[in-house]
C-alpha cells in the first residue's frame, strides 16, 4: 500500500478510535478526554452540537432497545428506576453485537448482581421476557401429530425418545416473576409461593408464545425426555422419586399426549 494511503488510513483509524472511545465514555455519564482530539479533527463549521448528537443517540438508543424488549420489567420498575438500571447496564456493557436484538442478553445477570431490594425479582422478570423472545424467533420445525404416537409399535415404547420443537424452553422461576408478568398482562397470576416454580414455554402453531406451569412430576418427565433426551423407560425410572409405580404409566401417557397436543414434539425415534 502506498505510503500516503497508509498514512491517511492511520488518520481514519485515529478518528475511529477517538470517536468510539468518546461514545463509550459519555455513555458512562462522564466527560471524555477524547472529545478535545475529536474537536480538533472537525471543520469549524460543523454544528457545535455535532458530537453531542452522536453521544446522546448512542446511550438513548440502547436504553430504548432494553425498554422495548422488556415492557413488563419497565412497567414494574417504573420509568425512573428502569432508566437508572438500563443506563448503568449501557455504561458497563459497550455493544459488541451487530443486531440490537441481542444487546440485552446480559441484562438479566447484570440485574441479578445489583444491590437493590428489587434486583432478584427484576432479574428473573427480565430473564423470563428474554426467554419468551428466544422462543418467539427460534427456528421453525415440523410438529408431530399425536397419531404418530398411537401408531408406535409396542416394542418401541420403552426406547422412545423425543426431539422437541426448537422454541421449547423450561424456565425456572425463583422469584415468582412469571406470576408478576401474568398480573401485569391482565391475567390472574399464580398464587404467591416461596417454592421454585418451573414453567414450560413454546411457540405454538400460530406462532404465538405460550407458557404453562409444570407440576413436579411433569417437570421431572419433561426434563428427562425433552431436555436430557432419555428414553421413556429411563424417564419412568426417574419418576419413581415423584410418583408411585402404579401411577407412572398413566401419568406418562397423559404427559406425552399433552406435549403432542401442544405441538412441542418435532420428532420421535
Amino acid at each position: 500500500m502506498p505510503a500516503r494511503i497508509e498514512s491517511s488510513l492511520v488518520g481514519l483509524e485515529h478518528l475511529q478510535h477517538h470517536m468510539m472511545a468518546f461514545l463509550l465514555d459519555t455513555a458512562q455519564g462522564t466527560s471524555s478526554s477524547h472529545e478535545a482530539e475529536l474537536q480538533r479533527l472537525l471543520t469549524a463549521d460543523s454544528p457545535p452540537e455535532g458530537l453531542q448528537i452522536y453521544s446522546h443517540a448512542y446511550g438513548t438508543r440502547l436504553v430504548e432497545v432494553l425498554r422495548n424488549d422488556h415492557e413488563k420489567l419497565y412497567s414494574w420498575l417504573g420509568s425512573e428506576l428502569f432508566e437508572s438500571f438500563a443506563r448503568s447496564y449501557v455504561a458497563s456493557h459497550p455493544s459488541t453485537v451487530r443486531s440490537l436484538r441481542h444487546y440485552g442478553a446480559g441484562f438479566p445477570s447484570f440485574l441479578a448482581e445489583l444491590e437493590h431490594p428489587k434486583a432478584e425479582r427484576a432479574a428473573q422478570l427480565c430473564l423470563f421476557e428474554r426467554t419468551l423472545m428466544d422462543a418467539y424467533d427460534s427456528a421453525s420445525a415440523p410438529r408431530l401429530a399425536a397419531d404418530r404416537l398411537t401408531a408406535l409399535a409396542p416394542e418401541r415404547w420403552p426406547v422412545l425418545k423425543l426431539r422437541c420443537h426448537p422454541s421449547v424452553r423450561v424456565f425456572t422461576d425463583t422469584a415468582t416473576a412469571v406470576s408478576l408478568w401474568q398480573e401485569m398482562n391482565g391475567a390472574p397470576g399464580s398464587p404467591p409461593s416461596s417454592e421454585v416454580q418451573h414453567w414450560l414455554l413454546w411457540r405454538d402453531h400460530s406462532r404465538v408464545c405460550q407458557f404453562r406451569h409444570l407440576q413436579a412430576a411433569e417437570y421431572v418427565a419433561f426434563t428427562a425426555m425433552g431436555t436430557s433426551h432419555l428414553t421413556l423407560a429411563d424417564t419412568a425410572e426417574r419418576l419413581l422419586e415423584t410418583l408411585s409405580a402404579e401411577q407412572i404409566a398413566a401419568q406418562l401417557q397423559q404427559f406425552l399426549g399433552q406435549w403432542f397436543v401442544d405441538g412441542l414434539v418435532s420428532d420421535i425415534n
Binding site: 494511503i5 491517511s8 461514545l23 438508543r61 440502547l62 459488541t96
Partner: peptide
C-alpha cells in the same frame, strides 16, 4: 463499529482519496 464495539449509528467518514481506496 470500531475496536470490536458497535455504535449502532451511521458515522460519517472523511472524504479523502485514501478512504475511497479503502
Amino acid at each position: 463499529s470500531g475496536g470490536g464495539h458497535n455504535s449502532h449509528d451511521l458515522l460519517p467518514l472523511p472524504y479523502t482519496e485514501e478512504v475511497v481506496v479503502h
